[in-house]
């Protein structure tokens, strides 16, 4: 074995590449099956859906399920898309603002109790959400924010992970740049907006995507805070709709496609940032 010559090694690697590909192709098809099964089912007729055993490809291709779901007066999807979007976008904006500002301050300024405050921020990351879930609900109730979209925005304005992430990124902003701006008489807020923020593009994109995804997909906390139908978000509506449509899987499948796929397609174009964010949080804890 030790006398393996270089060309042989090359050849061997090529074979391995092919073998891995051969294993990965059926594996990825299996991984996609739940999506495929749902999409195919959304085009089947009610009669075909109830057929036993089920068919894989739709025998008669129909768009009626989508028509039914989109015109169901009890399922104003537009409203629920709006609710989800308001919560997700508002959270992205406020979290990016507070995280970048605080991250920049922790990276570039010296002040009293800096270490203690930073330690406190890190420590809040250790508090699991289910411990603060019940009291959080009670506090929101006292503030009159139950069944209010603000209930999902107000408590989340400052994000410990975001501060941590931005501190890391802001450290690489050159001090000379900041000092030059100060000598030129720029105010601190102007420096943050005009000089620091443009340098933090990748961090803004990464944290922005993660925050959007987290809020868009959230279930438990919205389930607790939003108990009235008209303020609910897409994930809660989807479970409500599916539990109402027990023997009408074709409608649930069409509704699920309408809820899951549009955002998934958008994610395909921005997944680089999400993967980056997850890798960062995973490698750095």
């Amino acid at each position: 074995m030790a006398e393996n010559s270089l060309p042989q090694i090359k050849k061997k690697r090529k074979i391995r590449v092919n073998l891995a590909t051969l294993i990965l192709i059926p594996m990825s098809l299996v991984a996609l099956l739940p999506f495929i099964w749902m999409i195919l089912g959304s085009f089947k007729t009610g009669a075909e859906i109830r057929q036993i055993p089920p068919t894989f490809f739709p025998q008669t291709f129909t768009l009626d399920n989508y028509r039914k779901v989109l015109t169901d007066p009890q399922l104003p999807l537009g409203l629920f898309y709006r609710n989800s979007a308001i919560i997700a976008v508002a959270n992205v904006i406020q979290v990016l603002f507070t995280s970048s500002l605080l991250g920049y301050i922790f990276a570039k300024f010296e002040f009293k109790f800096k270490k203690v405050i930073f330690w406190f921020i890190l420590a809040t990351m250790m508090i699991p959400s289910q411990l603060t879930m019940i009291p959080g609900y009670l506090i929101l109730a006292k503030l009159g924010l139950i069944n209010n979209l603000l209930g999902l925005i107000v408590p989340a304005a400052v994000d410990a992970f975001g501060i941590f992430l931005f501190r890391q990124f802001a450290q690489s902003v050159p001090n000379e740049l900041l000092d030059a701006a100060r000598v030129d008489g720029a105010g601190e807020f102007k420096i943050y907006f005009k000089i620091v923020l443009p340098q933090l593009g990748p961090a803004l994109a990464t944290l922005g995507m993660l925050t959007f995804m987290f809020n868009w997909n959230a279930y438990l906390w919205p389930l607790i805070v939003l108990t009235e139908q008209k303020v609910r978000t897409l994930p809660i509506i989807l479970t409500w709709f599916s539990s109402r449509m027990v023997s009408n899987d074709h409608y649930t499948m069409a509704a699920s496609v309408l809820v899951i796929l549009p955002v998934l397609i958008v994610y395909l174009f921005v997944q680089k940032w999400i993967v980056e964010g997850i890798t960062l949080s995973g490698l750095k804890g």
Binding site: P34, T239, D249, V275
Partner: peptide, 29 residues
């Protein structure tokens, strides 16, 4: 990587509903 990563991006509620269609005793895949 995209294919295996895709479910991470889906809402877990959607994942549960999709798998419900897989596990259904009569109509499941």
């Amino acid at each position: 990587r995209t294919i295996f990563f895709l479910p991470v991006l889906a809402p877990s509620v959607g994942v549960a509903i999709m798998w419900g269609f897989i596990y259904h005793p009569q109509r499941g895949l």
